[in-house]
Simulated assay, not measured.
Amino acid sequence: MSEVSLRVARLTDAAAIRQIYSYYVQNTAITCEVTVPTVEEITGRMKKTLQHYPYLVAELDGQVVGFAYIGPANPREAYQWTVETSIYVDRECRGHRIGTRLYDALEELCRRMHFVNMTAHIVYPHDDQPDHYLTLASPKFHEYYGYKLAGRFDRNVYKFDKWYDMIWMEKSIADHAQAPVAPLDFADVADDFFAK
């Protein structure tokens, strides 16, 4: 079986990322977007993220089969130690632990960058029952990795003619120090991380 490899995303990956993401936009309630972003929009998002944060892709047999990135949970300065995570895997490539590899890399990078809290904002069925557009895979994945439920918002998301809740899950990955070290930029840790 081929091995999954990770690397920093390149702007030239935007089309492949769009291909993976388009399935989730068009066929699931996992993302709150209802229109697939253009390659140009994805490229712009990647540029913005990579200014300070990791944006990773997973490759299998030379093809991009997943992507993951973090961003600020809130742009205001006092939130700077808390990030929000996003991970998407090609639906045809499940079973290769791609999501696991991407998540492990993001968490290690977050530690090296001196972040303290990782969060995930997850669409959740209002009646707690999965449906054609939304399973419970994402909250279960995050729970497996030690995330705890931090809050639930009642019917915040409307997609496919149905209301869904939004849950926030969080994980502390470092001590909540009295004087936390300022977070580093991704560029400050990327070379050492990928040299391992």
Score class of each variant (00 low, 15 high):
Gln19Glu: 15
Gly62His: 02
Gln26Pro: 00
Ser138Phe: 03
Arg18Ile: 07
Ile17Cys: 11
Tyr23Met: 07
His126Met: 06
Leu50Gly: 03
Gly71Asn: 11
Tyr133Leu: 07
Ala105Met: 04
Leu184Phe: 12
Pro130Asn: 11
Met118Asn: 05
Phe186Trp: 09
Val181Gly: 01
Met46Tyr: 07
Thr100Val: 12
Pro183Asp: 14
His52Leu: 10
Thr12Ile: 08
Arg7Cys: 04
Tyr53Glu: 12
Lys159Met: 06
Ile122Phe: 09
Ala137Ser: 12
Gln80Thr: 07
Thr49Ala: 07
Trp81Arg: 04
Tyr24Trp: 06
Lys48Leu: 13
Ile17Gln: 05
Glu41Leu: 11
Glu41Pro: 01
Val8Cys: 13
Ala182Arg: 14
Asp61Lys: 05
Met169Asp: 02
Met169Lys: 09
Lys148Cys: 10
Glu77Ile: 13
Ala68Val: 10
Gln80Asp: 08
Asn117Arg: 14
Trp163Cys: 11
His132Leu: 15
Phe160Gln: 02
Thr35Phe: 06
Glu77Thr: 13
Trp81Thr: 06
Ile173Leu: 05
Ala150Lys: 06
Asp90Arg: 03
Arg7Tyr: 06
Val57Thr: 04
Arg91Leu: 04
Ala68Cys: 05
Glu77Arg: 13
Gly99Gln: 04
Val39Phe: 03
Met1Asn: 11
Asp128Pro: 03
Ala73Cys: 13
Thr35Lys: 13
Cys110Glu: 00
Pro183Ile: 14
Tyr23Ala: 05
Glu33Asp: 15
Val57Phe: 01
Leu109Tyr: 03
Gly146Asp: 03
Met118Arg: 02
His126Leu: 09
Ala16Gly: 02
Ile98Thr: 01
Tyr158His: 14
Arg91Ser: 13
Thr38Asp: 01
Asp165Arg: 02
Ala16Ile: 02
Arg76Val: 12
Tyr103Gln: 03
Trp168Pro: 00
Ile167Glu: 02
Pro139Glu: 11
Leu109Glu: 03
Arg91Lys: 15
Gly44Arg: 08
Asp165Phe: 02
Arg97Asn: 12
Asp161His: 12
Thr85Phe: 00
Lys47Val: 13
Tyr145Ser: 05
Asp90His: 11
Lys196Asn: 12
Asp13Phe: 08
Ile42Lys: 09
Ala16Thr: 04
Gly151Pro: 08
